[in-house]
Amino acid sequence: MKKNLGEIIKQDMIQNRGYILNSLQLLKLILWEKYDPMKYLIFFRVANYCENSPKLIRGIVYRIYYHHSFKFGYEISPKTKIGGGLRLPHWGGGIVIHSNAIIGENCEIMQNVTVGNNALKSRDDVAIIGDRVTLCAGSKVIGSVSIGDNVVVGANSVVVKDIPTNTIVAGIPAKIIRYVNN
C-alpha cells in the first residue's frame, strides 16, 4: 500500500524531531526557519509528490524546491524514490543522490554522502538501498549495488559491491567488519 504525502512527511518528522509538528509549528518552520533539514525534506516530498502534476504546477514547485536544494547544499532530484522516515541530521550537507537511486524507509544520510553511478559502466545504473540504512559522513555508494536492510556504512567508505542485510561495513572498498543481530 502506497503512503500518501501527509503520512510520509509525518514519518520524516518523527525521524528528525521525535514528534509530529502541529499546524502552527509547521507554518513557522516553512516561513521563518532558515536552516532546518526538516524544511528541506518537506519541499523535497512536495516536489516528489508533484512529479506527475501539470507542467505549470510542477514548474512552480520545482523552482521553490531547487532554491532550497541550493540553499541547503543537497543535490537530490525530485524524481528520486526515497521511503518515509528519511533523516538528514546536518544542513549544508553536500549530499548528492542520483535520480535513479532507490532508498528505503527510516534511513539516515550524513553530510558529504554520494549515491551515484559508475560513469565507466553505466550512467543510469545506481544503488538500491534497503530500510534502516545509515550512510555515515563522506561515504560513497557507486554504481549498481544493492545494500540490504539494517546496514551501517562507515565514514568515508566506498561501496562498490553488494552489501548483505544486518552488517556494518567500512573501508575503501567497503568490507564487512561486523554482523549485527536484530
Rank of each mutant, 00 (worst) to 15 (best):
M1A: 05
M1L: 04
M1N: 09
K2R: 14
L5N: 00
E7G: 01
K10R: 15
I14W: 07
Q15D: 04
R17H: 08
G18R: 13
G18H: 11
L21S: 07
S23K: 15
S23D: 13
L24H: 07
L24G: 01
L26Q: 05
L26E: 10
L27G: 03
K28N: 15
L29A: 10
L29K: 02
W32H: 13
E33W: 04
Y35P: 00
P37V: 10
K39E: 06
Y40E: 02
L41F: 06
I42V: 12
F43S: 02
F44Q: 06
V46L: 14
N48A: 07
P54F: 12
P54S: 02
K55N: 04
K55A: 05
I57M: 13
G59F: 00
I60C: 14
I64N: 02
I64D: 00
Y65K: 05
Y65P: 00
Y65H: 03
H67S: 08
H67E: 06
H68E: 10
Y74C: 00
G83M: 11
R87L: 14
R87Q: 13
R87V: 00
L88A: 08
P89G: 03
G94I: 07
G94F: 05
I95N: 07
I95H: 11
V96C: 08
H98P: 00
H98K: 10
N100T: 02
A101S: 10
E105T: 04
N106F: 13
N106A: 05
E108A: 11
E108Q: 11
Q111C: 06
Q111K: 06
V113I: 14
T114A: 15
T114W: 12
S122L: 08
R123D: 03
R123Y: 15
I128F: 12
I128T: 15
I129N: 07
I129A: 02
G130V: 03
D131H: 15
R132H: 14
R132N: 15
V133N: 08
C136Y: 14
G138C: 03
S139P: 01
I142H: 00
S146P: 00
G148L: 11
N150Y: 15
N150M: 08
V153E: 12
S157D: 01
V158R: 09
K161V: 00
T167K: 11
G171D: 00
R178M: 11
Y179C: 02
